Amino acid sequence: MRMFGAVARGLRENAGVTTDALAERVGYSKSLIIKVERGERMPPPMFVEKATELLGGGALLAQAAAHLERRSDFPEWFEPYADLERSAISLYKYDNFVVNGLLQTVDYARALLSDSSALVEADEIERRVEARLARQNLLTRTPLAQLAFLVEESALKRPLGGPDVHKAQLTRLLGIGQLRNVTIQVVATSAEAHAGFDGPMTLIETEARRQFGYLEVQGRSFLLEDRDEVSTLNQRYAMIRSQALSVRESAKVIEQIAGEL
Rank of each mutant, 00 (worst) to 15 (best):
48 V>R: 01
169 Q>L: 13
252 K>L: 13
154 S>P: 01
259 G>D: 08
220 R>I: 11
17 V>K: 00
111 A>G: 08
71 R>C: 05
253 V>I: 14
188 A>W: 00
60 L>P: 01
70 R>Y: 08
162 G>H: 13
67 H>P: 00
121 E>M: 11
14 N>A: 06
32 L>P: 00
237 Y>D: 03
52 T>S: 15
9 R>K: 13
255 E>G: 08
249 E>F: 02
30 K>V: 13
179 L>N: 00
139 L>V: 09
155 A>C: 10
196 G>I: 03
196 G>N: 02
182 V>I: 08
117 S>N: 15
8 A>N: 06
61 L>D: 03
30 K>R: 14
203 L>W: 05
164 D>A: 15
130 E>D: 15
118 A>L: 13
20 D>V: 04
10 G>H: 07
69 E>D: 10
245 L>D: 11
205 E>F: 06
168 A>D: 15
213 G>D: 01
96 N>E: 10
165 V>R: 13
144 L>P: 03
93 K>I: 08
43 P>I: 09
173 L>M: 15
161 G>H: 04
190 S>M: 06
145 A>V: 08
2 R>N: 02
194 H>M: 02
1 M>L: 12
136 Q>L: 03
250 S>A: 15
205 E>H: 06
212 F>G: 01
133 L>E: 09
52 T>M: 14
259 G>Y: 08
241 R>V: 07
142 T>M: 14
90 S>F: 03
20 D>F: 05
230 V>A: 01
90 S>Y: 02
202 T>D: 06
17 V>S: 00
44 P>F: 04
236 R>D: 05
111 A>F: 09
216 E>L: 12
179 L>A: 02
63 Q>S: 14
102 L>M: 12
192 E>Y: 05
